Simulated assay, not measured.
Amino acid sequence: MTAYGGRGVHGQTVATLGMRIVSGEIAQGAVLDLGALGRELDVSRTVLRESLRVLAAKGLIEARQKRGTVVRERAHWNLLDTDVIRWRAHAGETARLLCDLGELRDMVEPAAAALAARRRDEADLAELDSALAAMADAVDGSAEMAAAADLRWHRALLRATHNELVSALDSVVEPALSLRDALVHEAGMTDPVPSHAAVVDAVRRREPGEAADAMRALLAEAAQDAEDVAGPVEDGLVRTEEER
């Protein structure tokens, strides 16, 4: 799930090859000509080998006997990896990413809010309140501040379910949610505090049904913000201007 944080020649090589693969410039099933890539990118064999190891860990490539290094089918890519998400956005898949994230959250978070309302303790409420205060402070701040506060709040809600598997889902939604927060913040999103506060209020009062409804309203607001940024999505399919 984690991003590759390398910088310099190594990091640039990972990013260049990753974006080429994700964008389709290097096709799925293609065999990489390592010698040609090394010469084109002007990098040593060691740098290229280490970069390919990073891409293999993300599921983008694999070494095959008698064939060499091959670009894997998209089904094998780690689509939740932070770098892969960023490369997909760079390749023009932002609307697809935001749509998929919205559908995932619709499936998970209303049920999580209801469970949190049943099981939360005082420590959970304190963290939710603190995260909510951080969100309020970040409204007029940077995109990074807003994203960090939002992620903190959603982690706190998942952990308030006191279900370890549900809590672990923060690593599933975090990369794409970070992208969404950065995009909508820059575009000018709806103030997120009231909708998040409504969920906390229902959780505090131990009202599972109200908590789930408040979360659905929050997600509808988030979906509208995403549509304002990336354009409408119909029936789960991203439409081009000509198709609309």
Rank of each mutant, 00 (worst) to 15 (best):
M145T: 11
D225Q: 06
D213H: 12
A222R: 04
R204K: 08
V71I: 03
T82R: 13
R45V: 11
A147P: 01
E103R: 13
D150L: 08
A36P: 00
D129W: 03
M145C: 09
N78I: 09
L219Q: 06
V14D: 03
R39I: 04
A56R: 14
S195G: 07
I85L: 08
R53A: 14
A149Q: 02
R155Y: 08
V14I: 11
D235E: 13
E207A: 14
A91Q: 04
A111K: 08
E227R: 10
A176Y: 00
L104G: 13
A226S: 15
L41I: 07
G188A: 07
C99H: 11
G11K: 01
D140E: 15
P175N: 04
A91N: 08
T190V: 13
P194Q: 05
D33S: 04
R20A: 07
V14Y: 03
A113Y: 05
D201C: 08
R159N: 09
E234S: 09
T16E: 10
G68Q: 09
V229G: 04
L98I: 03
A149M: 02
A222Y: 02
L97K: 00
L79A: 15
R119D: 06
S23G: 09
R20S: 07
M189L: 11
T161E: 05
D33V: 01
L60V: 02
V238S: 06
A123F: 10
D137N: 10
R7H: 12
R67K: 14
L97D: 02
D235G: 06
R20Y: 07
A211E: 01
T240N: 08
A126Q: 10
L183W: 01
Q12W: 08
V184I: 14
A15D: 15
R152I: 03
P232H: 14
Q65M: 09
E127V: 14
T240D: 09
G236W: 03
R118C: 12
S23D: 07
M189Q: 14
E103Y: 07
A114S: 11
Q65E: 11
A117M: 05
I61C: 06
G18L: 07
A197E: 15
A36D: 11
H196T: 12
A156E: 00
A75K: 10
S171K: 10
P175L: 05
C99E: 15
A114P: 06
V9T: 12
L101G: 02
E25Q: 14
P110S: 05
E242Y: 11
A91Y: 04
V54G: 01
A30M: 04
E40G: 00
T2N: 12
E93L: 14
R72Y: 03
L132M: 05
A211L: 05
D191W: 01
A182P: 00
D213E: 15
W77H: 10
E144Y: 03
A168R: 09
D140T: 14
